[in-house]
């Protein structure tokens, strides 16, 4: 029996030392991780929001749920860009669930009034060399300035105005569809999105450096 206890005790000791070590590492790295994530978010927001905002869009947010932004109606954060009291536009993530493999995460910026400011693909698992042209080429620039009415939403194969890639139609079709749904949501809810007061003080406080 003493053997049995010795074995258990040894493992417990190893586990305890490992846990202490990991707790220490977490304490040291959690700050830099949050800061790195925030910088990354700000970089993405700067790229998609209409130019000239002077607020902190990562702290001026509202949280909404809508199946058009996220199929399962998970909460989506809307980042608002303002200059003084003027609403310039908003940026938010949309998920295209119907790509070639897995979800495509897209950050889109819309100007007040409902034109696309810019579209960026944040993450995807599309085929290298085919579908990944949505990040490697200037293809997303085609969205700039588009509204619900000044363009036919869809890839050319489906009678729309957006290019597909040779050998990859599914990926651009999914992105175009997701951006269109995002834009429809924005146009419908624009007034509400800008008047709602920030409801996420907690998140904003967490990301402060």
């Amino acid at each position: 029996m003493p053997d049995f206890f010795k074995l258990g005790l040894t493992l417990m000791l190893v586990g305890m030392i490992a846990t202490a070590l990991l707790a220490g590492t977490d304490a040291v790295t959690s700050g830099p991780i949050a800061e790195a994530k925030r910088q990354e978010l700000l970089r993405a927001l700067r790229q998609v929001l209409p130019e000239g905002f002077d607020n902190q869009p990562d702290q001026d947010t509202v949280v909404v749920t809508d199946p058009r932004l996220e199929k399962k109606s998970k909460p989506v954060t809307i980042y608002r860009g303002r200059k003084g009291e003027t609403d310039l536009g908003a940026a938010f993530k949309v998920i295209a669930p119907d790509g070639y493999s897995g979800d495509i995460e897209i950050m889109m910026g819309v100007t007040a009034g409902g034109a696309i400011a810019s579209v960026q693909v944040l993450s995807h698992k599309e085929t290298p060399g085919l579908g990944d042209k949505i990040t490697l080429t200037a293809w997303p620039d085609a969205f700039k300035g588009k509204t619900l009415s000044n363009v036919k939403w869809g890839v050319k194969k489906d009678g729309g105005d957006f290019d597909q890639f040779a050998g990859a139609t599914i990926t651009p079709r999914a992105v175009v569809g997701a951006v269109k749904r995002g834009l429809e949501f924005f146009v419908e809810n624009e007034a509400k999105l800008f008047t709602k007061t920030a409801s996420t003080e907690k998140t904003a406080a967490e990301v402060k450096p």
Binding site: A18, L21, L22, T25, D26, T29, P32, I33, A36
Partner: peptide, 14 residues
Amino acid sequence: ASFVTITDLTMNAF
């Protein structure tokens, strides 16, 4: 596993 987690967290931060 401990060293892997340390590596994971450190790379995530820096």
